[in-house]
């Protein structure tokens, strides 16, 4: 009998500091994974939590983790060469085929960038879509993730970056991400598709704006964050209506997600 709760060991190859409280762990492992899917990561005795995969290469998985509590404290105490435990990947991610030939707009707030980072990278490298625009929002300049890549996207004119608040040494955009929706090229609206990821409140307001702009709800995708305790459709923590976010999500078409009321 398969025991789906049993995790397997994964070796930490590298740890990339992102911000004061975020680190990207590079794990050795070849698993079939889609962007937007998540793993249940754990440290024995400290806890287990869902973490979305932010990137993957041939033999490497990338997960970005924010230090917020008992488990993540334990994770941050680890070093390259150490092992963590993982099971997954779980859930429904983003399917590249959904966006073929579209003008894709990726709108990401804060750590919401992690589950779509691979999507952005994929479509930069793979020209199967008509165009790509990225809108990124962080709380402060100190919270910006994946700085090197984000700078490259901005420099290439691909991405608009804003921070909610900044000190005098910040020369870039400031203000809420919703305010920068107008920067997106929506001239060919019927061909635009949107991926919106971030905190619940941000998803709420961005999607309201998009619907006001007459974007059909079937052209919007979101990724919902919930507390998944098992990732297997058993524990009930991520259930909304008849939907289990861990099974049918976390990536949803908005047409479905908007009917998921908490």
């Amino acid at each position: 009998m398969i025991n789906p709760f049993l995790p397997s060991k994964m070796k930490i190859l590298d740890i990339i500091p992102e911000t004061e409280i975020d680190q990207t762990f590079v794990l050795a492992g070849r698993k079939p994974v889609k962007p937007g899917q998540f793993f249940q990561l754990s440290v024995p005795g400290a806890g287990e939590a869902p973490v979305s995969v932010s990137d993957f290469e041939d033999d490497k998985l990338f997960v970005t983790i924010r230090k917020v509590g008992r488990l993540t404290n334990a994770l941050f105490a680890l070093a390259p060469g150490d092992y963590i435990f993982a099971r997954g990947p779980y859930g429904n991610g983003f399917d590249y085929r959904d966006y073929v030939d579209s003008d894709l707009k990726v709108i990401a707030g804060g750590t919401g960038l992690a589950p779509v980072k691979k999507v952005i990278k994929h479509f930069i490298a793979n020209k199967s879509i008509a165009s790509l625009e990225v809108l990124l929002g962080f709380k402060t300049p100190q919270d910006i993730l994946y700085r090197r890549e984000v700078r490259a996207w901005v420099d290439a004119g691909l991405a608009t970056l804003t921070v909610d608040k900044a000190g005098p040494d910040w020369s870039g955009n400031t203000g809420l991400i919703t305010g920068y929706l107008k920067n997106l090229d929506l001239s060919n609206l019927e061909n635009c598709k949107f991926i919106v990821v971030g905190p619940p409140i941000m998803i709420k307001f961005i999607t309201i704006e998009l619907l006001l702009l007459q974007v059909p709800e079937e052209n919007i995708w979101v990724s919902l964050e919930r507390k998944m305790s098992c990732g297997l459709g058993k524990c009930g923590h991520c259930k909304i209506g008849e939907t289990y976010v861990c099974l049918e999500g976390p990536a949803f078409r908005f047409a479905r997600a908007r009917r998921l009321l908490d």
């Binding site: 754990s42 024995p44 400290a46 287990e48 488990l71």
Partner: peptide, 25 residues
């Protein structure tokens, strides 16, 4: 009611040991 939460606790003095439970939620 079938909901539960997965919980971890260290086991023994040696930090590398631990126990994973689930408890009703």
């Amino acid at each position: 009611c079938s909901c539960f939460t997965v919980l971890d606790a260290p086991l023994g003095a040696e930090k590398k040991m631990g126990e994973r439970w689930r408890a009703w939620a």
